[in-house]
Structure formats: C-alpha cells, structure tokens
C-alpha cells in the first residue's frame, strides 16, 4: 500500500498540509525578516501542491491548475524581489534585519 501512494489524491493533500504547517511554524518563530520570507515561500509551495493535486485528480480540465501554479510562481517571484529590497532598505536604516529592531512606529 505504501508504494501505491503516489496515485492517491489524499497523499498530495497531506504533503501540502505538512508543508503549510512547517511554513506557519517558521513564520511565527523566526526573528529575522529573511527567515520569515523563506517560511512564506514554503507556504506558497504547499498551496501550489494542493492546486496541482486537484488539477491532476479531480478537475475536468488539467490545464487550469498548471496555469494557476505558474501564476503563483510569477507572483511569488515578484513578492520575493519586493520583500528583499524592503529588507535591504530596512538593513540600511537600522543596521539589522531583526524584526525587533525596527521599532520606530512602536508606541
């Protein structure tokens, strides 16, 4: 039974859920901005796996999910570029990428 797992929708959904959980864990525990960005990439990967799994097993048109995964990749690339440039700007301002050092707006 273990070796036939790859032909089963639930396997892929559980993998996606595990990646999502790992990403959430990273995003709430990391203290640096880059670490949080890496965890956010894991969350996006988990959701993409979900889309691709439904695309393969249940959707009538198997192109839709692939196109959606490609758009997720494009938006994730844009998000990484913007996020990293913000991190560079924050580093230039505070000489640190720790989330607890950027506290100018803290009341």
């Amino acid at each position: 039974m273990t070796l036939a797992l790859y032909n089963n929708l639930a396997t892929y959904l559980v993998i996606g859920a595990l990646l999502f959980g790992i990403g959430i864990y990273g995003i709430v525990t990391r203290r640096t901005l880059i670490g949080m960005l890496i965890a956010a990439e894991l969350i996006l990967a988990g959701s993409s796996i979900n889309f691709m799994a439904f695309n393969r097993f249940t959707a009538p048109d198997p192109v839709t999910g692939q196109v959606f995964a490609l758009f997720i990749m494009a938006v994730a690339a844009a998000e990484a570029a913007i996020g990293l440039s913000i991190i560079i700007a924050v580093y230039r301002q505070f000489k640190s990428i720790d989330t607890e050092d950027a506290v100018q707006l803290k009341g």
Binding site: L13, A17, G21
Partner: peptide
Amino acid sequence: GTAALLAGGFA
C-alpha cells in the same frame, strides 16, 4: 501547537 493544529486539521 499552532502549526500542528493547522497541518493536522487540513490533513
């Protein structure tokens, strides 16, 4: 616990 709850719930 947060992460395990989310992942376990979705699974």
